[in-house]
Design a protein around this nucleic acid. Structure first.
Lengths: 197, 197, 197, 197
DNA sequence: CACTAAACGAGACGGTACGTCGAGTCTTGGA
DNA sequence: TCCAAGACTCGACGTACCGTCTCGTTTAGTG
């Protein structure tokens, strides 16, 4: 909506070719190196774009990485339908563990790592990924409560943290693997905390 | 044993004054800036030390930060004694939440963030902090099992992840605060997952 | 010709202000210190220029010194006209001795000294200074031959070496001064070698 | 004399093995690199000697190079005897040209180059090499005067400069080679300047 | 024959400068 | 007005040597 009524601007319009080329270069480069080691210089070189063009549209390589990330990996690990809340959560958690054990996990952990020194990167991560998923998770839990599976006194946010916290913990600290055993055992044990007494 | 017969080394011995001065400078500098923004140059300047001396003994600013960290904050958040396992864990978790809500938490999160691109920093964190604490936590849980409080089928590692994962989750992602309410609510809810049916 | 059709180049053009500032800083610094003790760092500092800008356009401080030198001292010690070859050479030699006894001599000797380990500096010295002067000297000697003053069997290059070699000898080795007595005595004695029997 | 009455000193005497090893290392290293590029560090490394030992006995790498030089190349290019002064000088000049065209010339030119910024190196060169040779040359010229070959009004120092200056000129500036033709032509032409009218 | 005391190797120290990289900005000409 | 190209200032990188400084270890005399 707002885009269509965007004010008419004089001058040459933004080059979509450049935008795509930049995001693509970032994505390609992140396959072979750390976000930390990625340089604006290299992105410009790789995408045949002037550095100024990058600076004109992005404030940091982190937010640029975030855009590249969004462009490529949005649709992911939905909650299955037509199952009990317990089953649906179990299955979705397992598939998230699986997703985080590969490239996707590495990019998420690097983005959040970058966010430790750049608050807006972290905010961007939350707004563009996490919030949506947490909302979905909370809806499922509420459904479980309504259907009598879960304790009605649950603090929803806390419940989500207990379920997903362990996954992020292993993702960051890597003290133990995000393997099948974990994918199976975690829901079994963690969901106990949500059950009715 | 072997340490007492430590090999005689030729040459001028390492200056303990320099070592202390460097670690102290790192600690001071990290109070006002990000680990990412910390430069070896600045550390050398602040500690009145040659850059080469830093490079001689540390491989990166991250491992240096880790050493500074260890030097300053090792004795922290122990498990209280003479309490039931449930009580001891509850109290220790609360005090960890509290610790992570201040400077200590910021340094931990930055160190682990740095570890995302430097595996040995992460390893160092695990070896010098985490392992010791996890071992202590597992011991308490075992005690709880023996005393009939907790489910004897528990996977200890998984249990620890469920208890502490949510804390690290909020520490990293900062979607919700590490406040008193969380410090109180988390143990109550998460420990349910460990109880006997 | 080719210069006027110089290829159009993309990008920001070289800053003449920086170039001038650098060369000027070099010149000023060389007034108070040895070329050996001159550092790129100091030049950058003094001329308020990034080090990279210096490295972009010069390969070494020696070639930079040579450029600074050329910029400042090209027009020097011409051969007087309307005199006999003998007189013209005598006077020019005397004025060169005089020039070499001051700052000019010190810079020449240091540049050539630098050239002992950097062949292109030496080549630069020859191409941009010496060759032109030697050519002029040889022309005068030829004129002297034509006018019957000098021996027609003279090897011109050798003749020039005999006339000017002693000056450079004293300049480098400093075993004796480049004083008025030398300025007067050298032409008198050395030119005998060129005369007709 | 003075050496034999050298004051008795307590303590360990200077190690001749180290001295020899150092000088030898310098000599070897100078075969493959410039005096400018030679570092005390490298000499110590190569000669298996502590840096302090070098600094204890030499004030700079230049004076060290000079010592190494003296140790290896003192006996050189004497004046032949039983010849006329003209012949003796001619032959000695030719052999000097020849000597300077090889390694010997390169070391001399580098040492004198170093001397441009270190006056004592230059002085050392003069005292330990040049003076002796100039004295010998002046003696021969005087002999030539006595025997009626040369002009009795000659300034001896100036005469030596005229004879040898051209050799050093080519050695330093390298505008023309120190070849056989020069070795033959130079004495023929330059000695004319010394002859009786 | 132990005792001195300087010289020795090794190598850490505080520094300075190196030459390179990338940051973010600026200045062209062309689209 | 945007864009590519590329030069600009700035600051940090990690390295090489500088000359100095401890160390523990020789190695002659001397007492």
């Amino acid at each position: 909506m707002s885009k269509t009524i965007a004010k008419r601007k004089a001058g040459r319009p933004r080059s979509q070719a450049s935008r795509a080329s930049i995001l693509n270069a970032v994505w390609e480069l992140l396959k072979t190196q750390t976000l930390k080691d990625l340089s604006i210089e290299a992105i410009a070189r790789e995408s045949k774009v002037g550095k100024a063009t990058i600076y004109r549209w992005w404030s940091s390589k982190e937010s640029l990485a975030m855009d590249a990330f969004v462009e490529h990996v949005l649709p992911l690990t939905p909650f299955p339908e037509n199952l009990s809340a317990y089953e649906a959560i179990s299955m979705q958690m397992a598939s998230l563990v699986n997703a985080f054990s590969g490239d996707y996990g590495s990019i998420v952990s690097q983005s959040i790592a970058a966010g430790q020194s750049e608050p807006d990167v972290l905010e961007s991560y939350r707004e563009r990924f996490l919030d949506e998923r947490r909302t979905a998770a909370k809806a499922i839990i509420e459904k479980g409560i309504e259907e009598g599976e879960f304790d009605p006194d649950i603090d929803l946010e806390l419940a989500v943290d207990i379920l997903y916290g362990p996954i992020y913990f292993r993702l960051f600290v890597a003290h133990l693997p995000l393997d099948k055993q974990f994918a199976k055992g975690l829901p079994q044990r963690a969901l106990k905390a949500l059950l009715k007494d």
